[in-house]
Amino acid sequence: MATSSDHPYSALTPDTIMDAVESKGLYCDYRLYPLNSYENRVYQVGIEDSTPLIAKFYRPQRWSKAQIQVEHDALHALEEEDIAVAAPIILDNESLFEHNGFYFSLTPKIIGDSPEAGDLDQLFQIGELIGSMHAASADWTTDAKPFIDSLERVKQAKRKVEACPFVPKSMRDGYEKVVVSLGKKMETMLKTHSTARIRFIHGDCHRSNIINDQGRLTLVDFDDCKMGYAVQDLWLHITDASAKQTQLSELIEGYESFCSFDAQELDLIDVMMAERHISYTAWIAERWNDPAFPAIFPHFIGEDFWRQHLHDLNDIVAHWGKWR
């Protein structure tokens, strides 16, 4: 895969992007627009005498070819079941391509915006969309993207955060204390729910990964698809703690139009919330050599970021176990 003395995307110039697209027999019209994507690089590419395509260049050394293929195969299988997803196009029986050391895919452009945060009607529709996706993939398994215990993910993330030079010395003891406390709570909760069903999930199903195309909600970006718990694809749509029961009710009612939901999984939201907060911070630290990250997260090096991070973790501890 691509190597660089600077960062993984140093070699991904505009000419490289257009050469990659044209290597598949398509002709660019030199209109190239970068889209929001931190982990990968995604561009809208103008195509002569046709509608633009979305070119996604995968971060080198993050996923293997087999793991990316799992994502593509899942999207095509869901599309065949009439589930609204953004599936990559197939050219010469392939959907995953390689050019100049980069894996990339091409997807039709979908026009629309993310759903409105907290809108109850749209939460019901989001629940329907996720439920239909889970119903269609009910018997799927994948060795390439296996289930990984949340405790293990937190342990890995904790080591990365502790190695980060930007953590203020005055906050290191507080960070250690709260993460240890959360780890104990997570372990107890996971043991209590050890029989919860593991299934195929989107894995990063937040609002920005859904496009509202004139009322039709479409799931995009299956990068993090894997084996996990159903509730993991639902809880990120809760945007207001004071209205969480109402929002959950709409999500689950929509979900159960297609797929049954085990309400006991709601207890696992605290586990996932803790994991996401810690892993997110570790992710920024790990990607800091990518010039996009200091530009997007300039506050990461300041005390205010870490003070807020500690506050959020302590808040999870304080409100643990109140989702049902």
Rank of each mutant, 00 (worst) to 15 (best):
A11Q: 14
D15S: 09
A20C: 03
Y27M: 12
C28E: 08
L32I: 05
L32S: 03
L32T: 03
L35E: 09
N36H: 09
Y38D: 06
Y43C: 03
Y43F: 15
Q44E: 15
V45L: 06
I47L: 10
E48Y: 08
S50C: 05
I68H: 01
Q69G: 08
E71F: 02
E71Y: 04
L75I: 07
D82I: 06
L91N: 02
F97L: 10
E98C: 14
F104R: 01
F104Y: 11
I111Y: 08
G112E: 07
P115C: 14
G118S: 08
Q125Y: 10
I126V: 14
D149P: 04
S150Q: 10
A157W: 00
R159I: 10
S170A: 09
S170T: 06
V179S: 05
S181A: 15
L182S: 02
K185P: 04
M189F: 05
A196R: 06
N209Q: 13
L219Q: 09
L219D: 04
V231W: 00
V231S: 03
Q232N: 12
D233R: 02
L234K: 02
I238R: 02
A241W: 13
Q247C: 12
F258D: 00
A263I: 13
Q264T: 13
D267T: 01
D270N: 11
M273L: 15
Y280R: 13
W283Q: 05
I284W: 02
A292H: 04
P298Y: 07
I301Y: 07
F305D: 01
R307K: 14
V317K: 06
K322E: 12
